[in-house]
Design a protein around this nucleic acid. Structure first.
Lengths: 148, 148
DNA sequence: AAACGATACTTGTAAAATACAAATTAAAAG
DNA sequence: CTTTTAATTTGTATTTTACAAGTATCGTTT
C-alpha cells in the first residue's frame, strides 16, 4: 500500500488544475491565489492584511501587491482601522461578493460533476475522509500549521 | 452536507503548502513544478518534452524553459530521438535520480507523519477515498482530463 | 512629552514563471 | 521537390514572487 505518494501526487496536480480552470467568471479571469484571497476575505470577520496573508501562507509583501491588484479590479476594499491606523480592514465590494458567489457556484458545479461519478456511499466516504485528512494535517507538526 | 467546497478549499491550500515545503533537498531548492517534472520523467518511459508538458498541463513554451533550468541544474538530460529528430527524449541524470528519491523520501515522511494522526481504519479509508476521488476526477468531463 | 522599539504595511529592486506570437528544424504528404 | 504538419525554441511582455529597506502608527519607557 505504498502508492500513497503517487495518489497524492496525482491528487495535488488535479486540484491545481481544477483551481486554475475554475476561476474565470464572465470576462474576468481570477487566478488561484486571488480566488483564495477572495474566499478568505468573504469568510473571516473584518480581517486585516496580515490575517489573510498568514491564513494563506503568502508573504505579506507579495500579498500587499495582490491586494492592490484586487482593489484595482474593484473586487476588494481596504480601509484603515479606526482603533489602530496601522491596520487595514479588508472587505469585498458588491462586485467582489458577486464574484465570490460566482466562484462558489462554479466550484460546486465542478465538485458535483466529479462526485456524480461515485455512488451515494462512496460520496459519503470520500467527504468523511477529506474531513479526516484535513484534521490530521491540522495536527501535523511538519506542515500546514498556519493554515486555518 | 454542503461544506464540500470548504473542505476542498482547505485541502487544496494545504496541499499547495505541503508541495512548497517538501522540495528542498540538501542545499538545493526545488519548486513544486520542478518536483512534478522530475517525478514524471522518472515515472514515464523515455518521455518526450510534449508528453511531460501535457501530463502536467504546462504550456510547452514554459516547459521548454523549465527543462533548460533543470538541465543547467544537472538533474535532467535531453537527447534527440534517433527515429525522429524533432523529438527529444528526457531522462534523469544520476543526480536527478538521487533528487527524485530524496523528494520521494521527504514526501513519504510528510505523509507518514500526517497519517500517524489517524488510526489504522481511518488510514485505510482515506487512502481508498483518494483512489475513488482520483478515479472520479479522471472520468470528469469538466476538469483534469489530460492529467495522467 | 520625547525617545525608543515594535508592529503593520508599502515600495525598490531583482529574479523567476508564464504565455502568446513568431521562428526553427525535421518529418510526412502531395 | 514543394508544401504541410509537427516538436521544440526564442522574442517579448506580463505577472508573480520575495528579500531588503522604507514609512507610518502605536505602546512603553524614561
Amino acid at each position: 500500500m505504498d502508492n500513497k505518494r503517487e495518489l497524492f501526487q496525482v491528487l495535488t496536480r488535479r486540484f491545481g488544475l481544477l483551481n486554475k480552470n475554475c476561476c474565470s467568471v464572465g470576462a474576468i479571469d481570477i487566478s488561484t491565489v486571488h480566488s483564495h484571497i477572495i474566499y478568505e476575505i468573504d469568510k473571516q470577520h473584518e480581517p486585516t492584511m496580515q490575517q489573510i496573508a498568514e491564513t494563506l501562507a503568502i508573504d505579506v509583501t507579495t500579498f500587499s501587491r495582490q491586494i492592490q491588484t484586487l482593489i484595482k479590479m474593484e473586487l476588494v476594499t481596504k480601509s484603515p482601522s479606526l482603533n489602530d491606523k496601522r491596520y487595514y480592514v479588508l472587505a469585498l465590494t458588491t462586485q467582489g461578493k458577486f464574484m465570490a458567489s460566482a466562484i462558489e457556484a462554479s466550484m460546486n458545479n465542478y465538485l458535483d460533476e466529479i462526485f456524480s461519478h461515485m455512488n451515494e456511499f462512496e460520496q459519503e466516504t470520500v467527504l468523511r475522509s477529506i474531513k479526516l485528512l484535513n484534521n490530521a494535517m491540522s495536527k501535523s507538526s511538519v506542515c500546514c500549521t498556519p493554515l486555518l
